[in-house]
Nucleic acid binder design. Structure first.
Ligand SMILES: NC(=O)c1ccc[n+]([C@@H]2O[C@H](COP(=O)([O-])OP(=O)(O)OC[C@H]3O[C@@H](n4cnc5c(N)ncnc54)[C@H](O)[C@@H]3O)[C@@H](O)[C@H]2O)c1
Ligand SMILES: NC(=O)c1ccc[n+]([C@@H]2O[C@H](COP(=O)([O-])OP(=O)(O)OC[C@H]3O[C@@H](n4cnc5c(N)ncnc54)[C@H](O)[C@@H]3O)[C@@H](O)[C@H]2O)c1
Lengths: 208, 208
DNA sequence: ACCGACTTGTGAACGATCTCACAAGCACGA
DNA sequence: TCGTGCTTGTGAGATCGTTCACAAGTCGGT
């Protein structure tokens, strides 16, 4: 394999898309695929796909293209999906519950191993076969579970405090859904998904 | 005001962030703010903030900074948030319901005016004070409601068909949550939010 | 064994985005 | 009225991301 150096989010996100597409091809028993065939599926240039892939090694065969099975395997390795990732979910409101449900179905390499809330009606009860703990126990419980990634779906007002707790107890990555600009901890890779911002972008295009 | 020309998504999304921050300042009775003060809040350079804002006109006062109230008002106008936007939600599973709930609370300029599903247990029932219709009625009902934006939260297998229906009946923008690469209609501004891709990006950083 | 048709991987050109640095402008006090 | 101190708006330059174009390599047919 190859470069550890700064791979951009854009490239990484496209790798996920390629992987998804390649798996569909596997299901259709396609064994080989060229960069231009892939490029047609999404609206990308073939060169970009080749550049993206080439950053991690030489996966293709000149004159032939890429062997689908091999490329799937390589991408899984590159993205780190060949090992299980333990997740904690913090905030089991309507969004958090939906995410938890989604993850237990689509469980491939991501597995929920801890759940937290503050609502007395939820703490102590189960979501799936997992007991919901009180958030004040985050620091105590997370290290026992081996969770490295946290999904943060609490109200805005609680987001920063929960984030800091998570950072303190060894969480390495957070996917945040609260519409706030988190003051980030240096030890934590943080990514936010902001529904409202996306809607507002669409609103802009409608009124112009 | 100024340029209609191609504003990038990056800029637009930052404008939303600025707006959110400015509203907090309003609540704290701060009347003036400089680009460098804003820059501290998020981790951005002051110059970038000024460039972003300057694309739409001269909102600042040299030597003083920006008047918070004025800038809020200007950004609301720029983003098109000064008028109501009617939304349709398609697919009221766990995610769709969470989104619908979220939008009815946080209703500022976005209002749900139509809801669709195919599940017999849902069609005919209400979500909030809105009746859920069968998806086959999308083409008929959407034009009556004036919805211009659709939120698409159906399973992957149904996403493309629903999208095409929405495009056909005059929807101008779609926010898609299904993990698929939609074949886009030229008349529709489309944006996707992909939970899985975001998780996979985080996974990459953990294993490297 | 060779040719022709094809595809990859990649340097170089291009374009978009961000940062730097400073002239132009405003407020306030002397 | 003028000067000082501050901040905006903005060209010029740096950096990052994408596209172009082609040499290098592979395969199948003859
Ligand atoms: N629901 C959506 O569709 C949606 C969409 C985009 C963003 N969001 C954001 O996601 C977050 C959650 O949204 P929601 O709709 O699920 O809200 P919700 O009110 O349904 O759920 C929030 C949950 O967090 C819990 N909570 C509160 N403080 C907590 C703490 N300190 N520690 C742990 N849990 C705590 C609450 O008890 C509740 O169960 C919000 O920030 C919201 O803005 C939601
Ligand atoms: N739940 C999550 O946290 C989550 C996160 C990320 C992405 N997603 C994606 O969002 C989509 C919905 O997820 P979900 O968890 O709500 O699934 P879900 O199964 O709970 O809900 C899907 C809903 O869509 C309805 N539906 C099916 N076909 C339809 C059609 N043709 N027209 C209208 N409605 C139809 C179903 O009846 C159901 O109510 C999926 O594509 C999923 O991959 C979900």
């Amino acid at each position: 394999m190859a470069e550890p150096a700064g791979i951009s989010s854009l490239t990484l996100n496209r790798l996920s898309v390629y992987l998804r597409c390649l798996r569909q091809l596997q299901d259709s028993d396609v064994t080989h695929v060229s960069s231009s065939q892939l490029a047609q599926q999404f609206e990308l240039s073939a060169a970009l796909i080749r550049k993206d892939l080439a950053q991690f090694g030489e996966f293709g065969i000149r004159g032939t293209g890429y062997r689908v099975d091999d490329l799937v395997e390589s991408l899984i390795k590159v993205l780190g999906l060949d090992r299980a990732h333990n997740l904690a979910v913090v905030g089991l409101g309507s969004l958090g519950s939906a995410l938890a449900r989604y993850l237990s179905i689509n469980d491939k390499p991501f597995r929920i191993v801890a759940a937290f809330d503050v609502d007395g009606r939820k703490v102590g009860h189960k979501i799936g076969h997992l007991t919901i703990h009180h958030s004040r126990e985050i620091r105590e419980i997370i290290p026992q579970t081996g969770a490295q990634i946290a999904v943060l779906s609490v109200p805005e007002s609680a987001a920063q405090r929960c984030y800091d707790d998570l950072a303190d107890c060894g969480i390495k990555a957070v996917l945040n859904f609260a519409p706030v600009q988190l003051k980030q901890a240096p030890s934590v890779r943080t990514k936010s998904v902001d529904f409202q911002i996306n809607l507002e972008e669409l609103a802009y295009f409608l009124s112009s």
